[in-house]
């Protein structure tokens, strides 16, 4: 009788190990990872006298220091002051 229990125990252990093997394999194939995806590139424009500031989407050919016309308040030069990218975090399923 005790031999029967021992056999059952062995079989149970084998089943558990087999299931674990399958689970490990599947989880190693797919894993969710968090990645930063660029949403928008922004050009921040500022008046040289500092009395006006605006932001717009980046245009091809923009660079920090580029003159972007005249200030609507004082008429001085408007210059691209900073160019930065807004990222948002996205969870994706990918291979490990």
């Amino acid at each position: 009788m005790s031999s029967d229990y021992l056999t059952l125990l062995f079989i149970a252990i084998m089943i558990v190990l087999f299931i674990q093997l399958i689970v490990n394999y599947v989880s190693s194939r797919k894993q969710s990872v968090e990645v930063d995806v660029p949403r928008k590139i922004i050009s921040k424009i500022r008046c040289v006298h500092g009395d006006y500031e605006t932001e717009r989407e980046y245009h091809e050919g923009d660079f920090v220091g580029k003159i972007e016309g005249a200030c609507p308040k004082c008429g001085a030069e408007l210059i691209i002051d900073t160019i930065y990218t807004k990222y948002f975090r996205q969870t994706t399923q990918s291979r490990k």
Binding site: I41, E60, G61, G65, I83
Partner: peptide
């Protein structure tokens, strides 16, 4: 290729903020 500032451009960006044009 597009000429967008990268993270490493922060040093030159600080320099630009001092000298402007």
């Amino acid at each position: 290729i597009r000429g967008v500032p990268i993270g490493d451009s922060v040093g030159p960006l600080v320099a630009y903020k001092i000298i402007k044009l």
